[in-house]
């Protein structure tokens, strides 16, 4: 399949090494849509998310991804505390994607970063140290990074797992609304999909064998 505007999977099988863990899976996601994937531990949700993000290769099947990269939040283990980042520096990484808007002035970019932090419930946190935030706050910063990115596809792997129920509801609504308004796609892996479904996301439940 050729890269285009939508995400499309046909009989996709993903695995760890050469061992299949999920699939075959077939579904598509159009601009403006959100999809939440849920299922028991070990059913291959994270492996699927990594494959759709382009971090791992599929074992079989066809995958069409939008061009210009993917705004991806991996599971929390990806964060490396050896790099002493400020919140603002994490947000600035959004401008490094291949879809970044390079014409924006520094002042406008700064204002946009502040506004997105506001939207995820972390007003004025730009100069705080990323490593010193709580798990939930770090997840909000990562969500802000993804929202700031211009990539057409956002993939969030358990990106609200440390949030309380009310915060998860607020974040799910903000992300789904952002996808609708900007014509972006949001693919979310979550153990508790209710907040996402309430925000208008489609639901895909995988069984223990990694099939729908």
């Amino acid at each position: 399949m050729q890269p285009g505007a939508a995400l499309e999977l046909k009989d996709l099988v993903v695995g760890r090494g050469s061992t299949p863990v999920a699939g075959p899976l077939s579904f598509s996601l159009a601009p403006g849509e959100s999809l939440v994937i849920t299922g028991p531990n070990g059913c291959g949700k994270t492996t699927l998310a990594r494959c759709l993000a382009g971090v791992a290769a599929p074992l079989a099947g066809a995958l069409q991804r939008p061009v210009n990269g993917v705004a991806f939040i991996p599971q929390s283990g990806d964060t490396d505390a050896l790099v002493p980042l400020s919140v603002d520096e994490v947000l600035r990484f959004a401008a490094l994607s291949s879809a970044a808007n390079t014409a924006q002035s520094a002042m406008a970019a700064h204002a946009e970063r502040a506004a997105v932090l506001d939207a995820v419930g972390l007003p004025g946190a730009q100069h705080r140290r990323f490593a010193q935030l709580s798990g939930g706050e770090r997840q909000r910063v990562q969500i802000a990074r993804v929202l700031l990115s211009e990539c057409p596809l956002m993939i969030l792997d358990e990106a609200t797992s440390a949030a309380d129920a009310a915060s998860e509801q607020m974040l799910a609504a903000a992300i789904a609304a952002h996808a609708r308004q900007r014509g972006r796609m949001a693919l979310v892996v979550a153990h508790h999909p209710a907040a996402w479904v309430a925000a208008g996301a489609r639901l895909l439940t995988l069984n223990a064998r990694g099939t729908p």
Partner: peptide, 19 residues
């Protein structure tokens, strides 16, 4: 420097973003 820091801090996210 910024690209290298992104790769060091969030390697999977950097790869997915197209770096």
């Amino acid at each position: 420097q910024r690209r290298l820091s992104f790769c060091a801090a969030f390697p999977d996210a950097a790869l997915a973003a197209g770096l």
